[in-house]
């Protein structure tokens, strides 16, 4: 019995050890990849056209879904806040205030980033992963091109435009909230706008944009890592896209907590 327990414990300990080692190795490999991205840059005229193409694909291509989601999330936040503020002693302006705070601090930067992790992240993983399985990355390497710089750097640079998309999400989210409040009969326009302007701290916007920039880097690099180092065929490209989405979301949520604690805590 004692021998059985010891071997079971040893087995479990080894499982945890190898599991931990696997993730530590992946984290190390990710940082090496990030370092490699900035080495041996591609010729500027080529890089410029790649960056513009990625801005079009990653940022402009996502504006539609960002605006759509932000508008309705803003509306939902307003309705839920209004329904929970049913005391006659609480001013209606609080609805505007809560909507503003929720949208600027959390919904626009974090919620949009999770959506982007799905939309942009899966595009990045599948496009790089397909290049890997069809040996296009090997072809770049053999030509003497720094494939990581060629493939990942334009995506990181394009994602620097992401705060603009989040700024639009903030605006549209608040607009959605205002429309829901006014046309849903939850608060008069004047009260809602008064709440929007109440106790405004510009640092909250700065905090949201700093968070957004960090998330942008994560959205560009974590899916690139999963695409670049994937092995297998078409099925594995799909699996890598799903894994990339899960890990990008996990990293965003953890960093969201850390950044909030550091900047607002």
């Amino acid at each position: 019995m004692k021998v059985k327990c010891t071997s079971l414990f040893l087995f479990l300990w080894l499982q945890v050890y190898f599991w931990r080692m696997k993730y530590l190795e992946a984290i190390g490999k990710y940082f090496i990849m990030v370092y490699e991205v900035f080495k041996k840059p591609t010729k500027w005229p080529i890089m410029r056209s790649l960056i513009l193409k990625e801005i079009d694909e990653l940022i402009f291509g996502s504006l539609g879904i960002i605006i759509f989601i932000a508008f309705f999330i803003g509306g939902v936040v307003t309705i839920q806040t209004a329904l929970n503020l049913n005391s006659p002693f609480l001013p209606k302006s609080l609805i505007g205030f809560a909507t503003r705070q929720s949208v600027i601090l959390e919904f626009a930067p974090t919620f949009t980033s999770i959506i982007m992790a799905g939309k942009v992240g899966s595009y990045i993983t599948s496009s790089i992963g397909t290049m890997r399985v069809t040996e296009q990355i090997d072809a770049l390497e053999i030509m003497g091109v720094n494939s990581l710089n060629y493939l990942v750097f334009p995506k990181i640079t394009a994602m620097l435009m992401y705060p603009f998309a989040v700024a639009i999400a903030m605006y549209v989210g608040i607009l959605g909230g205002w429309i829901a409040a006014v046309f849903g009969g939850y608060a008069p326009s004047g009260e809602f706008i008064k709440g929007l302007q109440m106790d405004f701290e510009s640092f909250h916007v700065t905090y949201a944009f700093i968070k957004t920039l960090v998330f942008a880097f994560v959205i560009a690099t974590v899916p690139s890592y999963h695409g670049f180092y994937m092995r297998g065929g078409a099925l594995e490209v799909g699996k890598a896209s799903t894994t990339a989405f899960v890990w990008t979301s996990v990293v965003i949520i953890i960093l969201n907590y850390i950044l909030t604690q550091l900047m607002l805590g």
Binding site: K43, T134, Q136, A139, M143, G144
Partner: peptide
């Protein structure tokens, strides 16, 4: 290098593929 599966860049035309190394180097 000529790869087994050709490894052409599928987002580029034939001309773009052949011009790529010249453009790059």
């Amino acid at each position: 290098m000529v790869f087994q599966g050709s490894a052409l860049f599928d987002s580029m035309t034939v001309e773009g593929n052949v011009m790529f190394p010249l453009d790059m180097f």
